[in-house]
Every structure is written in structure tokens, then in C-alpha cells.
């Protein structure tokens, strides 16, 4: 499905994987695609967001706050409230399996195996957002899928976190479509 993606749009997809990895996520979600838009610095997507009054820092902060599904770090204080002495558990485990055994597990390092082996799958809504970016491009009569269309796909995908992060800042589909169309026309003309 990526044949018609522009260089920038492909880069967004690649960077989204990096965003997911650095956030210790086990799948690439819509918020990772949104964060990736800011790393690729495509003219259309970022110009549109700026035009709509969306602040980069605010968006990235919101994305950083979305930490669902991430394994909790071992918290000695929290465990002590239910009578578990983490230091003692660690000591016993290390006695059997060697120094650092408990903290070296993949679970403790914060993520499923896939992340460490390099392959992170796209979650359902992220896939849908990319599919919808195709549809958005077609809807506007554009031949290629750029970062601006990915932005539209993200807004269109109501099941994704990116939709909600942007909706909270008043970014809706219609206005964004109009802005993307206008910018594309300006670039073409």
C-alpha cells in the first residue's frame, strides 16, 4: 500500500516505529504516527497544524502522557505496601540466577520480545489511519499520499489516540481537509 506514499510519508511510517520503540510501546499506535510527523518536518502536515493553532510542545506532552499498556517498573515502595520486600526478592533471585537477574529480564526492561527483536507491529487503528490517508488523498483528487494525508487519516480514525489528542485542541476533519487542500493547491500552483 506504500507505493504511492511520498518520501516524507514513508519517512513518517519509519519514524513512527522509532517513536514507538523509544516510548517502549509494543505496537505502533496512531500517537506514534502523529509524533513522527514532527520529526519528519513535512511542510504540509506541520504547516496545517500550525495554521490550526496546534502547539507542537503540547501535542508531544500529551503523547508522552499516554502510557497505557506499558509494563510498570518495579516499584519497591508500592510493593512494600502489600508486604513484599523487593530487595529481598531481588536478593533471593540473584542467589539462584546471578547478579542483575531480576532486572535484566525482558519484562523488567520494559517490553515484549518483539520490541527488542526490532519488529513492532502496527496496531489496528494505526493501520486504519494509514488506509484512510489513502482514501483522503483520493477524496482530494491527489495522486500521492503525503504527510498531510497521514494527518487527515489520523484525525479520521476515531479509535486512535491521535484523533483524541488533536480533537482536544479543536482539530476536526473538515477544517483540516480544507487546509491541506489549500496548501497543496498553493504548492502545485
Amino acid at each position: 500500500m506504500f507505493e504511492r506514499f511520498t518520501r516524507e510519508a514513508r519517512q513518517v511510517v519509519v519514524e513512527a516505529q522509532e517513536e514507538a520503540r523509544s516510548r517502549k510501546a509494543d505496537e505502533i499506535r496512531t500517537e506514534h504516527l502523529l509524533a513522527a510527523l514532527y520529526t519528519v518536518r513535512d511542510d504540509v502536515a506541520l504547516a496545517v497544524l500550525e495554521q490550526l493553532g496546534v502547539d507542537e510542545t503540547d501535542v508531544l506532552r500529551d503523547i508522552d502522557r499516554l502510557h497505557s499498556g506499558e509494563p510498570a517498573a518495579l516499584d519497591a515502595e508500592a510493593l512494600s505496601t502489600i508486604g513484599i520486600d523487593l530487595d529481598e526478592v531481588r536478593r533471593q533471585v540473584e542467589e539462584a540466577f546471578g547478579p542483575g537477574a531480576l532486572d535484566r529480564t525482558r519484562a523488567a526492561l520494559g517490553g515484549p520480545a518483539g520490541r527488542l527483536l526490532g519488529h513492532i507491529p502496527f496496531e489496528g487503528p494505526a493501520k486504519k489511519a494509514l488506509e484512510l490517508s489513502l482514501r483522503e488523498a483520493r477524496h482530494l483528487g491527489h495522486d500521492h499520499i503525503g504527510a498531510g494525508h497521514i494527518l487527515l487519516g489520523l484525525i479520521h480514525t476515531e479509535g486512535g489516540a491521535a484523533h483524541h489528542v488533536l480533537a482536544a485542541r479543536g482539530v476536526g476533519l473538515e477544517r483540516t481537509r480544507a487546509a491541506v487542500e489549500q496548501l497543496a493547491r498553493r504548492e502545485a500552483g
Binding site: 509494563p71 518495579l74 502489600i82 513484599i84 531480576l102 529480564t105 523488567a108
Partner: peptide, 15 residues
């Protein structure tokens, strides 16, 4: 506490 216990469980199971 529950979240941390889950993390501990995952580590121990993996080991």
C-alpha cells in the same frame, strides 16, 4: 502496588 506486582510476576515468570 498491583501494577508493580504484575511487573514482578512477569519478570519472575520469564526467569
Amino acid at each position: 502496588a498491583v501494577a508493580s506486582l504484575r511487573g514482578l510476576l512477569e519478570s519472575l515468570e520469564e526467569l
